[in-house]
C-alpha cells in the first residue's frame, strides 16, 4: 500500500492565506491543487512536505479563463478539463485543445490543473511546451506583491521553477497575436501515458512568410520547451516542406532522449524530428486559413 508520509493538512481560505502559510512554513510546505503529480511523488517519498496547503477552495480567485483584446489570462487552478472544453481558448490557441486531448485521461483531467502542471516542471509534461510555444508569462505572488516571469525563465531545469519558498503561481498570461496559430502532436503508448515524445509549434505570419515561429519538444531531454535554433531558422522564411524538413533536423539534433521502456533513444529522436515537422505544418496551415 502506497501512502504518503505523515503531514499536517491546512485548507487555504484565500490566496493571501495560502501565501502567508507558505511564508511562515518555508520549504516544509507544499501547495496541493489537483494532487495528481504531488500525491504520487509523496507516495514514493520523492516529496515529503511536513505541511500540505490545499488551495482547491480558491475557485473564485484562481479558476478562470479571461480574454482581453491582447491576451488571455488563465487562473492557476483551472483544470485540464476546463482548458479542453473551452471553445474560446481553442479558437485562439488550438494547441491547447490538441494537447489537452492527450494529457492523462478524462477522470484525471477533472483534477489536474494548469498551475500544477507548470510547477511540476516535468520534462515530459505537455503544458510547459504549450505555454512556451505561446510565449506565455507566469504571475508569481508572495507576501510583498507579484512578479511576472517569462515562460523561458520560469523553468530552471527538470522539476525546478522560478517559484521560490513562500511563493505561489497564480496566473498564466498568453499574448494574442494576429495572423497566428499553433498545434501540438504527441505519441503515447496508450491513453493517459506520458509522451514517448511530443512537439508543439506556434507561428505568426507576415503575409507569405513566417514572422516568428517557436517549436518545443517534450520527453526528449531537459530544457527543450522552446528550441531557439528552430526559431532562428524560421524567421522571415516562406513555409515549405524543405523548411519543415530543416526544422525537423534541428529538432533531432537538439533532442537528447534516453532509451527506456517507452522506446529507444533512436526512436524518440525520430519522433522529435517527425512531430516537430507535423506540428509546424499544421500550425502554419491553421494560421494561413488552410486548416
Amino acid at each position: 500500500m502506497q501512502v504518503p508520509a505523515p503531514f499536517e493538512y491546512e485548507r487555504a481560505t484565500s490566496v493571501d492565506h495560502a501565501i502567508a502559510l507558505m511564508e511562515r512554513l518555508g520549504d516544509e510546505a507544499r501547495v496541493v491543487a489537483g494532487g495528481h503529480s504531488l500525491i504520487p511523488m509523496m507516495k514514493l517519498r520523492l516529496a515529503m512536505p511536513e505541511y500540505l496547503i490545499d488551495i482547491n477552495d480558491l475557485v473564485d480567485e484562481l479558476q478562470y479563463i479571461r480574454f482581453t483584446d491582447t491576451e488571455v489570462r488563465i487562473g492557476a487552478l483551472t483544470r485540464h478539463q476546463q482548458l479542453l472544453e473551452s471553445d474560446e481558448l481553442a479558437a485562439v490557441f488550438p494547441i491547447f485543445r490538441d494537447a489537452e486531448k492527450v494529457i492523462a485521461d478524462p477522470v484525471v483531467r477533472n483534477r489536474g490543473t494548469l498551475g500544477g502542471s507548470l510547477c511540476q516542471a516535468d520534462p515530459s509534461e505537455d503544458l510547459s511546451a504549450v505555454c512556451d510555444a505561446l510565449e506565455a508569462s507566469c504571475v508569481i505572488r508572495n507576501t510583498s506583491g507579484e512578479r511576472v516571469v517569462e515562460m523561458h525563465d520560469f523553468h530552471r531545469g527538470p522539476y525546478e521553477t522560478a517559484v521560490a519558498d513562500g511563493e505561489m503561481l497564480t496566473e498564466v498570461r498568453i499574448p494574442i497575436k494576429p495572423n497566428s496559430s499553433s498545434a501540438y502532436h504527441k505519441v503515447e503508448r496508450r491513453a493517459g501515458d506520458w509522451a514517448v515524445a511530443s512537439a508543439g509549434a506556434a507561428v505568426t505570419m507576415d503575409g507569405d512568410v513566417i514572422a516568428d515561429g517557436r517549436v518545443g519538444l517534450c520527453a526528449v531531454g531537459p530544457n527543450l520547451t522552446n528550441v531557439q535554433p528552430i526559431s532562428d531558422a524560421l524567421r522571415g522564411q516562406a513555409p515549405s516542406e524543405e523548411l519543415y524538413a530543416r526544422v525537423g533536423e534541428i529538432a533531432a539534433a537538439n533532442a537528447s532522449p534516453q532509451t527506456d521502456t517507452r522506446g529507444t533513444a533512436a526512436y524518440k529522436t525520430h519522433l522529435a524530428k517527425e512531430l516537430a515537422v507535423r506540428s509546424l505544418r499544421v500550425a502554419v496551415a491553421r494560421a494561413t486559413g488552410q486548416a
Partner: peptide, 27 residues
Amino acid sequence: CDTSNCGTCVVWVDEEPVKSCTHLAAM
C-alpha cells in the same frame, strides 16, 4: 494500481468522477 492509471477506485466528488487513490480524504 495506486498510481491513478487503472480507474477501479473512481468515485464522485461533487458529481465529478475522480480517482480516489490520488485524492486525500481530507480534500
